[in-house]
Design a protein around this nucleic acid. Structure first.
Lengths: 184, 184
DNA sequence: AATTTTACCGACCGTTCGGTAGGTAAATAT
DNA sequence: ATATTTACCTACCGAACGGTCGGTAAAATT
């Protein structure tokens, strides 16, 4: 959906229905034929974004033919590709911080974040207990979101690249540790 | 400044000059007497916020009577206090993600973030080499900003509290490691 | 073939936006 | 005591906002 790109580029409040209409090739009234309000349209856009996110990024976590380290790296790298596209960062984080206090879209946003955490946790859990994998996944996502923030501020991809490297290295260390445990 | 609170609560685009005027007890034209444009006013507000941030949060890093672990914890806890006030999160991160692409205020925001990293780095450097301290400080801030994002989404302070615990624990571990090195 | 529904348009609604013009009363400078 | 500046007001501007209206042409239903 073209509306997604528009919201992603300019945020919720700084995107008018006129802009959205122009982006879709419709007139404003045409847009209102499909969606009753701007808020409602945004909700649909977010569900669309969530679907895209699931099928393009999170789906990597179930590619069981790859070893966990490579799966994690592939997943993160896909997310990075989205983030550096037009230097937009993470759609969910952007909207979350912009509309965070009123919590207009918090439910969908929470779902997206938790799905993300689950996907990463699934990968990690091959090398560590479920509980540890879950909290480590959450921690990784936090660190990643911070890295995206720095990337948006400085335009240096290095922040993202360094994060991916840290994450994968950590997982490799955990892998060695889990193997050595099994050998005992 | 009351304008700060208003921008912090509602973001840049969702805060009108009318709201700002009402918040300060002035009329809109009265505001325009002091600041030529909304963007200019925001810039002043951000400098004010930066000053506050430096003197209330970052200043903790120079309280040399406290051991590094306690200094770090005190600094982070002060930041947390700001974040949970009205559940607003981190002012700089909010504005950065909202206005990130145009980069309207990126210079000030970058300054704030880098000052922050320097303050944390200063604390860490007592237990590790300068280079390591710097990158670990950056990493900590990234993780913290992500924790704030989750806090804003879920309203669970636990995300922030867990982060502080992780950070302080890590530092203690680094401290023991540095002591054991000195003993060799 | 007649009817209904769908998708869309141009024009317009009241409101709010960022910003300005002109005036006034108090403080300050001379 | 007079002149000037400062701080602030009411009233207003054109543009843009989110959203609605009546209408139309094509598609789908009957």
């Amino acid at each position: 959906m073209r509306c997604w790109e528009e919201f992603h580029l300019n945020g919720y409040y700084n995107t008018s229905m006129q802009k959205l209409a122009a982006a879709t090739g419709l007139q404003k009234a045409g847009l209102y034929h499909h969606y009753p309000t701007k808020e409602d349209l945004m909700r649909r856009v977010m569900e669309f974004a969530l679907d895209q996110f699931r099928s393009y990024v999170l789906a990597v976590s179930t590619e069981l033919d790859l070893p966990p380290e490579q799966r994690l790296e592939k997943l993160l790298r896909r997310h990075k590709k989205l983030a550096i596209l037009h230097r937009r960062g993470c759609f969910f984080a952007n909207i979350a911080l912009e509309t965070g206090r009123e919590g207009l879209f918090n439910e969908v946003l929470k779902t997206g974040m938790m799905d993300w955490a689950d996907a990463v946790s699934k990968i990690l859990s091959e090398y560590m207990p479920a509980g540890a994998a879950q909290s480590e996944a959450l921690r990784l996502i936090m660190e990643y979101e911070g890295a995206v923030l720095f990337y948006k501020l400085t335009a240096e991809e290095e922040h993202l690249e360094a994060f991916i490297h840290r994450a994968v290295t950590n997982l490799k260390r955990a892998s060695e540790h889990s193997i050595s445990l099994k050998q005992v």
